[in-house]
Design a protein around this nucleic acid. Structure first.
Length: 562
DNA sequence: GCCGTTTTCGGCCCGACTGTTTTCAGTCG
């Protein structure tokens, strides 16, 4: 088992223990280990080989034995036993908003209901309210929640699909018969939600490629197969299709398999009658069509084909353009890495600066900083900054926007920080007017530089709260407040559409990882993909600025002031 | 489950809101 699989199993164990009403601290032990393993940059297998499992924080005798069993046998008896007591369908109920482990456990033990379909029927037939502790309101919310889950469909986030697509790509790339292999379809376009993993392979031995796919250990089943293609499901039920073409057809196929349907139809039209023999890249094809190269993220038929013909496509922001990250957490609040680790990870990425923006006091669960602790953190940051000449930690906070729109820390404290992000973390159910008024108050605060994750959406889990985006954009422009593109693949908030409108409106965006661990700085690439899909250019991006320029923009004095 | 010790047990982030109660349990962030 690899780290990803082990982390998933540990998390599932935690879910099952919770439903069974086991000791919450035991549950936390499993969750903490799952998160740790998920962030590990070494395979547990290697750590095991050198006998280091016991040195992992939070691993004692019991967890160590379980890790060993997983690594050595690829299975875990304890997990199997729990599965017998808690069917998978019961765990799916945890995704329903408002339904936690206790209520799920109650429903299962009282009724034996073990799937979403059964649960939905029971809610419709008003049978749930008969369970002591549940009422009509919960019943209604369960129905609404299942409707919401169904509307989300079978799509998964890019954060789930892309790593698996890369694994399959690398697996196929090992074959000597494979001349080229690329991820295509919506993943290549960087769509935040994708329904399947599509790969294009160039090979003259397509039967061998299909055979290799069938033998891939992460393939659950193959359901369709024929000359030139093989289709089935990977882990998590994720659909995949591998298309095999002759090497001479690769780049034309690559272009046609990447764009959205509407984009593809227009390109087929454009290619009609054009001699594409001998092209050795997508760029060469566009050239023969007298078009600018269209980056995959733009291939949605939103005007990019016309602009490419005119030669007026924008130059899109790249990961390499970013000079720093302006939204990260450390172990001062709910992050998993300390200041130095975060700083070193940022330096290793080639960043010139990193703003430390831990949570503020009202977010108690995250050990949010009060004025005193913030002051201590700032001191530690100043001390650390003496160590580098090529890099700078910026002081900052992700300050909570309270219910009435006021901020969680006094103005004079915010004034002393390099970067202030204001975010909503509570009262999601207010009306559009109330929500927008809170944001307006935050934007009008002269110390606020960036509004964090504007809508609070969590992809595949929860829609964002209602916001008057037009009004926010007008205010943001007026007050030179940037909007964050929160790069976490579960958020991607603001979305690409809003990002495009922001840039058209002259509002800057900040593409930030919201990393809670040093390994998560890399998540920024998802935000860049989303930004590119929103036609965002380098000059639109706050953290593409050099340090001096940024500090001038933020209105701080640059040196060690404050 | 782990951990640390003032060392083999007792503590392990918490505060607000919701829906169900009628004084509180469960969920969420």
């Amino acid at each position: 088992m690899d780290n990803r699989a082990i982390a998933a199993m540990l998390d599932e164990i935690a879910d099952m223990l919770e439903v069974l009403g086991d000791n919450p601290f035991k549950v936390r032990a499993y969750r903490r280990l799952a998160a740790y393993v998920d962030h590990l940059d070494t395979e547990l297998r290697e750590i095991h080989a050198r006998g280091g499992l016991g040195d992992i924080p939070g691993v004692g005798k019991a967890l160590r034995a379980k890790l060993e069993e997983m690594l050595e046998t690829g299975d875990l008896a304890y997990y199997r036993r729990l599965r017998e007591r808690v069917p998978p369908g019961v765990l799916e109920m945890l995704a329903i908003p408002g339904l936690g482990p206790r209520k799920v456990g109650l429903i299962y033990s009282q009724t034996g209901i073990s799937s979403l379909d059964e649960l939905y029927r029971a809610a419709q037939e008003k049978r749930l309210r008969q369970i002591p502790g549940l009422g009509g309101k919960t019943e209604f919310n369960i129905k609404k929640g299942i409707d919401m889950l169904r509307s989300l469909g079978r799509e998964v986030t890019l954060g789930t699909a892309l790593p698996r697509a890369l694994q399959l790509r690398d697996y196929l790339a090992e074959m000597p018969q494979v001349e080229a292999v690329e991820i295509v379809g919506s993943i290549r376009r960087g769509k935040p939600l994708v329904g399947d993993v599509d790969l294009l392979v160039a090979s003259s031995d397509e039967a061998a490629v299909r055979e290799k796919v069938r033998k891939y250990r992460r393939v659950l089943e193959v359901d369709r197969e024929g000359p030139g293609y093989i289709h089935g499901r990977l882990e998590l039920g994720l659909e995949f299709e591998v298309i095999v073409v002759a090497p001479g057809d690769f780049y034309r196929s690559l272009l046609l398999c990447t764009g959205s349907r509407a984009h593809r139809e227009k390109m087929v039209e454009a290619m009609r009658g054009v001699d594409l023999r001998g092209v050795d890249s997508e760029q060469a094809i566009y050239q023969r069509l007298a078009m600018q190269y269209v980056p995959p993220e733009l291939r949605e038929d939103r005007g990019e084909i016309e602009r490419a013909r005119e030669g007026t496509l924008p130059s899109l922001v790249t990961v390499e353009d970013l000079r720093g990250d302006l939204h990260v957490h450390t172990d001062w609040s709910d992050g998993g890495s300390n200041l130095r680790e975060m700083a070193e990870a940022a330096r290793a990425r080639g960043y010139r600066y990193l703003a430390v923006t831990d949570h503020s006091q009202s977010l108690a669960v995250s050990r949010g900083l009060d004025v005193e602790r913030l002051r201590s953190q700032v001191e530690e940051i100043r001390a650390l900054n003496r160590e580098w000449t090529d890099f700078r930690l910026l002081t900052g906070i992700e300050v909570d926007i309270l219910r009435d729109g006021s901020l969680d820390l006094p103005d004079e404290v915010l004034a002393g920080l390099d970067v202030v992000i204001a975010s909503i973390h509570s009262h999601f159910r207010l009306s559009r007017e109330e929500q927008t008024a809170r944001l307006e108050a935050a934007i009008r605060n002269p110390h606020v530089d960036i509004i964090g994750h504007l809508t609070g959406r969590l992809l595949v889990r929860r829609p964002g709260y209602e916001v008057d985006v037009d009004r926010v954009l007008r205010l943001a422009r007026e007050h030179r407040t940037a909007l964050e593109i929160n790069a976490h693949p579960d958020r991607l908030d603001i979305d690409e559409e809003t990002a495009r409108r922001a840039c058209q409106a002259g509002v800057r965006v900040a593409i930030c990882s919201d990393a809670h661990h040093r390994a998560d700085l890399d998540l920024v690439s998802y935000g860049v993909l989303s930004a590119r899909r929103g036609w965002v250019g380098r000059s639109d991006v706050l953290n593409a600025m050099e340090l001096d320029e940024l500090l001038a923009y933020l209105g701080t004095s640059g040196g060690d002031a404050g």
